[in-house]
Design a protein around this nucleic acid. Structure first.
Length: 659
DNA sequence: GGTGAGCTTCTTTAC
DNA sequence: GAAGCTCACC
């Protein structure tokens, strides 16, 4: 174990009881976790198969897996669990599915599927935001580990009581579909562990040492789950930073960090306050910003680094201008400072902000990798194929059936489906099973029955074949036999768009090829937990991602774009009084940078087609003026720098490639 | 039952 | 400014 400072060393070596590591940004917390895993294994304290590290994003899990692989060689790391809370919950449910009253191949409902249930059950005519609100209330109850009954008892308003009633029916619907939603991946394991001490003991036997990253992001249910896994002996290390709590909107409860000390009075607390990442000016900016938040336990982050470059604050005309400046500056810095493409990151509040950037980077032939969002899984053709896989694995998945039966169209329309739904309900069957039922089919028009028969036939053939095929092969076969490929071919007017969509389907199959464990159904469930962030290896490419996705990463040069009031902080968060979380988000962005930091704002932006005027983010005013270099504040320096860069516009740089 | 024109409507973030 | 929805029409 090399290169650890005293508190880091203490955190790694302390294994005699529960440990809380309060780790400031850039203080080496991932290093502590990976070193600790290596330490636990190397000292023979625990075999790898009894150690589990939990993170919040798949990306963080992968990052940690890579770092552990570099640190622990050979088969020593065999059986080590590094996964997200949700992946662990999924694994738990796939093993314990019977106790959870789920059948093998159960589906995971994504946000769209979930909302569709709410829409179906809620009073007709509710607007989208009311439906979202209801779903959020259900989700909040689940995140607190409440059952529908408990939610009803806890309800403090009419709205909440109505939502609790809806929750009960929502859950019944999921049960009927042999499906779970994201929240159930935490709630159901918790429910089972609460109810069965033996089961809990069994899982503690499997997971004898637990490490939890980003502990401030745990919600109520996750916190109780981790207590189950750690048990009363508290064989665990929790790492967290309340200043980087940015997930309250999905139920995260940073007070869980304090709760730990109450639940484990013997807990040892280690503070990591030395920042190894940021230059002096960057760190001072971050410290000044976060000091505006109320703190129960203020940290003092310090660093041995020199001042470094000033933090640049750019006033841009609009998003295109901003993107062009960023691209040109990256182009310049890469040459002048010999910074690799992969050491640049452009961070933004919303994923849609990447578009102008992509254009500008393409213009300059700068390779980039866009992570974040769920764009891949949201592609229509990918959803279609996944729906087919879900029906194959889970005949009770009505949501998947409804999508699959309509892609491609086979003369089964809304009228038939409504009729089928009625018949299915009477017979207590799922849609897919009802469609296989001859006597039920007789009650439909011959044309509709034909269409359903055709569908059922294909499903049966694929299901038979699925036993001999790998998930990847099954996916490829399905794409052909379902008629999906032909449908895409017919829909696409030009060859290029056909190929692009076909490629997405190829990529789906490829993902299955590289994934391990389970049949197509299990893999399809795992896939539901992935986002764009988890696709492909980002090579030596400029990284484009949301501020949320950037947590835990570091780069030589960071551009935080769109520092506009209303965007960062976001207007919705301002209205809901979540300004401190927005400030933490900005803090996370700033502290990703090692040497070069750029914060840009815009005079105007286009929103839904029309132009909107903007003011700079209020957070920019909270930064120490002495460490900033604002546009226009130092004309002499600016003109000197312009001379060094030697070019006026991105067009001129681009013309070097395309004369 | 399927299709396209014309209308409305906007989750930021992610498992 | 795109995506989804409704409705008239084939």
């Amino acid at each position: 174990m090399s290169g650890l400072n005293a508190p880091q060393k203490l955190a790694v070596e302390y294994v005699d009881g529960p440990l809380l590591v309060l780790a400031g940004a850039g203080s080496g917390k991932t290093k502590v976790i990976t070193e600790k895993i290596a330490h636990l294994i190397a000292t023979g304290r625990h075999e790898a198969k009894h150690v589990a590290a939990i993170t919040f994003t798949n990306k963080a899990a992968r990052e940690m897996r890579e770092r552990v692989a570099r640190r622990v060689k050979g088969d020593k790391a065999e059986g080590l669990t590094i996964s997200t809370f949700h992946s662990l919950g999924l694994k738990f449910l796939q093993i314990e599915h019977e106790r959870a009253q789920l059948r093998r191949g159960f589906s995971i409902f994504d946000s769209d599927d979930q909302l569709a249930i709410v829409k179906d059950l809620a009073p007709a005519g509710l607007k989208n935001d009311a439906l979202y609100a209801l779903h959020n209330l259900i989700s909040a109850a689940k995140n607190n580990g409440l059952s529908p009954e408990q939610a009803a008892e806890a309800a403090r308003s009419l709205r909440e009581r109505e939502a609790a009633g809806l929750y009960a029916r929502y859950q019944a619907r999921l049960q009927a579909f042999n499906a779970v939603d994201f929240d159930d991946l935490i709630r159901l394991p918790l429910l089972l562990l609460d109810a069965d001490a033996e089961l809990a003991a069994g899982w503690r036997e499997r997971i004898r040492y637990l490490l939890v990253d980003e502990c401030q992001d745990t919600n109520g249910a996750q916190y109780r789950l981790l207590k189950h896994l750690a048990g009363t002996r508290g064989a665990m290390t929790c790492v967290g930073d309340d200043d980087q709590s940015i997930y309250a909107w999905r139920g995260a409860n940073p007070e869980n960090l304090d709760q730990l000390a109450q639940d484990y009075p013997r807990i040892k607390v280690v503070m990591l306050e030395q920042n190894y990442r940021c230059s002096g000016r960057i760190l001072r900016s971050a410290n000044a910003l976060i000091a505006k938040n109320a703190h129960a336990h203020p940290k003092q982050l310090w660093s041995q680094h020199g001042d470094g470059e000033p933090v640049r604050v750019w006033a841009c005309k609009n998003n295109e201008h901003e993107a062009e400046r960023v691209a040109a500056e990256i182009h310049y810095l890469a040459q002048a400072k010999e910074i690799l493409w992969g050491e640049f990151a452009v961070l933004f509040r919303g994923n849609h902000q990447s578009r102008p950037l992509e254009k500008a980077l393409q213009l300059l032939r700068i390779p980039y990798h866009l992570t974040g969002g769920t764009a891949f899984l949201d592609r229509g053709e990918v959803k279609d194929a996944l729906s087919w896989l879900r029906v194959l694995a889970n005949p009770d998945d009505d949501a998947a059936f409804l999508r699959a039966i309509a892609s491609p169209k086979r003369e089964v329309g809304a009228t038939t489906l409504e009729k089928l739904a009625g018949l299915a309900q009477q017979a207590q069957l799922s849609l897919s099973k009802a469609a296989e039922n001859i006597s039920l089919l007789k009650q439909l028009t011959p044309r509709a029955a034909n269409g359903l028969n055709e569908f059922t036939g294909i499903i049966h053939r694929l299901r038979d074949a699925s036993e001999r095929l790998t998930p990847a092969e099954l996916t490829r076969k399905l794409v052909e036999q379902s008629g999906l490929l032909a449908m895409i071919r017919a829909q696409c007017k030009d060859e290029a768009s056909y190929l692009r969509r076909k490629e997405n389907l190829d990529e789906l199959a490829l993902w299955f090829e590289n994934a391990r464990g389970g049949g197509a159904g299990e893999l399809a469930a795992q896939l539901a937990l992935l986002t764009n962030a988890d696709r492909g290896e980002p090579g030596n490419q400029v990284r484009l991602m949301s501020l949320h996705a950037a947590k835990g990463l570091e780069f030589a040069a960071v551009f935080v774009i769109g520092c506009d009031d209303g965007n960062l902080p976001h207007s919705a968060s301002i209205e809901e009084g979540r300004l401190e979380e927005e400030r933490r988000l900005m803090y996370v962005g700033i502290t990703r940078a090692k040497a070069h930091l750029y914060l840009s704002h815009n005079a105007e932006t286009k929103r839904w087609g029309s132009v909107e005027h903007l003011l700079p983010s209020r957070f920019l005013d909270e930064l120490p003026a002495g460490d900033l270099l604002r546009d226009g504040s130092d004309p002499e320096r600016e003109s000197a720098e312009k001379k060094i860069r030697g070019r006026a516009s991105i067009k001129e740089i681009a013309s070097l490639f395309d004369p």
